[in-house]
Design a protein around this nucleic acid. Sequence first.
DNA 1: GTGAAAGCGCTAACAG
DNA 2: CTGTTAGCGCTTTCAC
Lengths: 354, 354
Amino acid sequence: MAEPSPSAGRRPPTIYDVARAAGVAASTVSRAFSRPGRVNAETAERIRQVAADLGYRTNPLARALPTGRTSMLALVISDITNPFYGEIIRGAQSAAAEAGYVILLVDAQESDRVERDALERALPTVEGVVLASSRMSDSAIRMTAKQRPMIVLNRHVADVPSVVTDNLHGMRLAVQHLADLGHRTVTYVSGPEASWADGMRWRSLRKAAAESRLRAHRTGPYPPTVAGGSTAAEELGHHGASAVIAYNDQLAIGLVRGLQATGRRVPQDVSIVSFDNIFAAELVTPGLTTVAAPLRAQGHTAVCSLLSALGGAQVSTGRPMVLPTRLVVRGSTAPRGRGRPRPAALDGSALDPR
Amino acid sequence: MAEPSPSAGRRPPTIYDVARAAGVAASTVSRAFSRPGRVNAETAERIRQVAADLGYRTNPLARALPTGRTSMLALVISDITNPFYGEIIRGAQSAAAEAGYVILLVDAQESDRVERDALERALPTVEGVVLASSRMSDSAIRMTAKQRPMIVLNRHVADVPSVVTDNLHGMRLAVQHLADLGHRTVTYVSGPEASWADGMRWRSLRKAAAESRLRAHRTGPYPPTVAGGSTAAEELGHHGASAVIAYNDQLAIGLVRGLQATGRRVPQDVSIVSFDNIFAAELVTPGLTTVAAPLRAQGHTAVCSLLSALGGAQVSTGRPMVLPTRLVVRGSTAPRGRGRPRPAALDGSALDPR
DNA sequence: GTGAAAGCGCTAACAG
DNA sequence: CTGTTAGCGCTTTCAC
């Protein structure tokens, strides 16, 4: 056969094809794309024109080999099934996209090993990593952070920059809210022991409770799931609590169910406040009074500061960046005692802008 | 300076380092990893040993350049915020991980342009793509499918292999359930016009309704969101429907709220069946009777067949692979007329194993 | 079975 | 400002 038919050798055009067609050296084409300033305006224009005609697209893999710039970021999630992370991913992905980066998703499937393997596989191809949640130990994280710029979310790891939400402020709002409703004692239903946020929330509660002259108890730990909340409800009887603050919304949902199953009414008999304000928080009945975290902003902020670190900026590892929280009041809280449920119109569930 | 300190040149070891240390040629090291059969067993063992000692890890980027094997798959989602996709992503990611692949997440952020850009950026670095949902036109999809093996989920595109759920069967179950409850007419509250699943569901409903001798109406389209459902509720009055089937769970949730807001009770006044069985379906009150899709299996199946296509297998583009559906009965459906709500114990919401 | 050599497509010195 | 020349780390003929 003489010549392969033009449509046969369907290889995408390379920088050399463009160079030949434009009558310049390959390096010039490269420059025209990466450092347009360093090349004659006309020449650059011609090259761009030719490239467009040929349908040339720079091959990111080939670019990455000599430079290490892969334009990819890893995002590690311990359980992608948890609705909590949807908004975070969205924020991360949009910030990444704005900067021309792409997100490599690492779902740990709640398994230590899966996470290690996946992250290890992803690490060499990414420029940096965001740990939105991780099963890894602090030391393992620090180890990884030595290989690639990293930023952790909702956790504090020494020597690694982080983004957290203002748990203390949120907790103060929650406690104040309960105090205003006449509650004098509050029980914290805690989440995973290993969770940094859990420890933080409990400490914040003690502090806030002291300030508001409430008594604080603690129960748990429980898995941060609906099922975990149901379990917690059974054991909650011992505390005879009229007000509880739950580690997160899922736990609170389980709690509501569990309590109702044993004949206690929410909010009439016990008021519940939780954390996060996930999508479902306003869907359940009663709607959850909850400390809302700026989920999307968390993802966005994390990626942005990671990118700036990649750009050479110094990101402080000392104190984390803290994002604001606010209290969203819905139907799960009511005045202490024979408090009537708040009228539907004040429930807020249909109105809350989230 | 004479010699860089050993800890300074912290470059990861390359294949050459291993080759030198093992006293073999680089090509042999390469073979030892990729085609162990083609190398002396002892030599291979020694190489593996040396590699382990040095902490050698093959650089996936460098491997990808000559071979095109990047071990990455793109997963396109039009809206990662939609809880529907969480399980699908999990399934996809786990199937990918099993095969040593990594997932590049493309979130379209509900925007055509964002999707195009992101996918275009991701395409050259991935071996294949799974379209879990996409804002793109059929022709744009077919175009992309020419560049990389692709498989679409819940949609049918000519010449592109796909994985769908058994909408017809699910619809039959739904209609039969309503018929059993005494309903004689059913209204379909439709989702996005552009949605292949929506068209499919409506056609299935007509068919199933005919078989069960019910009359079928249709209203919409509405955005497949809670807000869309609320809107739909307002307009539903005109149909005076006692039974409706909603395009998806979110729409149904909005519907329930909207109806309740105008004084109609669910399920006493109107029964509602929806599709998908997302996490929130069992959380709302009443729990949603819904046609459950095997979400995780969808993601898993899609990735598996994509991988087999990459492996050279012929994947039929003719008829899609269809995954089974089942009906999960909860509190949103009840006998027609002054039907009392089903007692809580039969609600099923707390029991359903999902 | 193993080694040598020629790239994959792009970038980054270094000269001119 | 532009061309030349080496590679990035790995794979893959092709000889031996």
